[in-house]
Design a binder for these strands. Structure first.
Lengths: 225, 225
DNA sequence: ACGCGCTGTGAACAATCGGTGATAATAGGT
DNA sequence: ACCTATTATCACCGATTGTTCACAGCGCGT
């Protein structure tokens, strides 16, 4: 996951870079506004923009990016700068951090913003959204890469159960209990078959998620990073 | 969601109150330190504490609350109270805002702090974290230096058992009982093999932890200092 | 009543894991 | 320095677990 750091201060890059790498992010360093705009089109998940920069200011960069993208943006502001405009609709930044900051705080806020923007993508309805996949239990519909996928009720329920807790492993018994009901007296093999059918329908190369088998335990819906 | 505002200045209450209500929060107004301590036990999600207050100071209130709670706290400091700000953060306040502030900024920070603390709670799920290593029994995943490590269930369970009690030595019998179950009738040699496999997968030079063998006793997960 | 699609089951097959024994290496005690 | 008890390592095989398939029962709508 690439994080763009735009600041003319080398010290900022060094301190943030270390923390970001430690947390599994990959910092991309640029030192002026123009480079920031250019780099923002690449495979960047979030921008950290200093306001005071050579070339374009962080505010201009932010506006520029917002013209064509919803890329999450965190602004770095010196104490006393106008903060209202930044977080407000005018600019559309997602958060701001006042200098001087602790790298730790910055990483925490980056995570928070990533999480929040992820949630916003999820929308308000009970539907779940992932890269190229959405699952709506309300209308019992599943779409993959924009197109509908015909799934049977049980398939959707299982998929929704798994996908509503990404990463969490469910045993077959748990799935039977929570999808079928506590009084179901069938074989655990049943779950396998449904998982197989779901997998066959959701052929998802290149998309960042999948249904993983945990040997001896159960299944989980896994999302990369 | 109730936000406690502790300040002796009526103007602060009025300006913050409006913004908070507009954002869906419910302000709870108190005007001195003693009232703040009393109110903090109620159904409050976050505290905004002025430092200069009649009765107890904000710093004392913060101390008081931190004795028994992790309630998120934002301190209000007058310009130039640099020392107070540091003390406040040392006491466990989550953020500080320098007067004069814009209500908008306060609301933004309240949201930021709530998100941050929320996430900290979320990160507090049964997962174990060490330097460069995390073990999550919920998702059956182990990550080393940010990258995933493929481990079998038994390996993860043993590692989790050891790492959840750092420093404590487990005999092979204890591990067999607690990981395999009380009815397991195998050789203790089995444990050795698994430990070997775990060690091979967690090559951890420079990180401050390791699985140590206690000759004639068993194994322990040791963390330096 | 009929056909159709959904669901569950059993069996065959494949993959993976875990335990065991033998052997080498190491630590501890004499 | 030697011997012994303990631990480390390795490779293998068996057994458990997961995958896949075909089929039959069931419910539903026509």
């Amino acid at each position: 996951m690439n994080i763009l750091i735009a600041d003319d201060d080398q010290v900022v890059h060094e301190s943030l870079g270390l923390y970001l790498k430690a947390e599994g992010f990959e910092p991309v360093d640029v030192y002026d506004g123009d480079a920031a705009v250019a780099a923002a089109s690449d495979d960047i998940s979030l921008c950290v923009l200093d306001i005071m920069m050579p070339g374009k200011s962080g505010i201009e960069v932010c506006k520029e990016i917002r013209k064509h993208s919803k890329l999450p943006i965190i602004m770095l502001t010196a104490k006393g700068e106008e903060i209202d405009r930044i977080v407000g609709l005018e600019l559309g930044a997602d958060d701001y951090i006042v200098k001087p900051f602790s790298p730790r705080e910055v990483v925490a806020r980056i995570k928070a913003v990533l999480r929040r923007t992820q949630e916003q993508q999820d929308g308000d309805d009970g539907a779940l959204h992932f890269n190229g996949l959405s699952i709506d239990l309300k209308s019992y519909t599943v779409t993959l890469r924009g197109g509908p996928v015909v799934c049977t009720p049980k398939e959707i329920e299982i998929l929704h159960m798994l996908a509503s807790n990404p990463g969490q492993v469910f045993t077959r018994e748990q799935l039977l209990n929570r999808v079928w009901g506590y009084d179901f007296a069938g074989e655990t093999r049943t779950v396998d078959t449904h998982i197989k059918r779901i997998r066959a329908k959701l052929d998802n190369r290149d998309l960042g998620w999948s249904i993983k088998t945990i040997y001896g335990v159960g299944y989980k819906f896994e999302v990369e990073q």
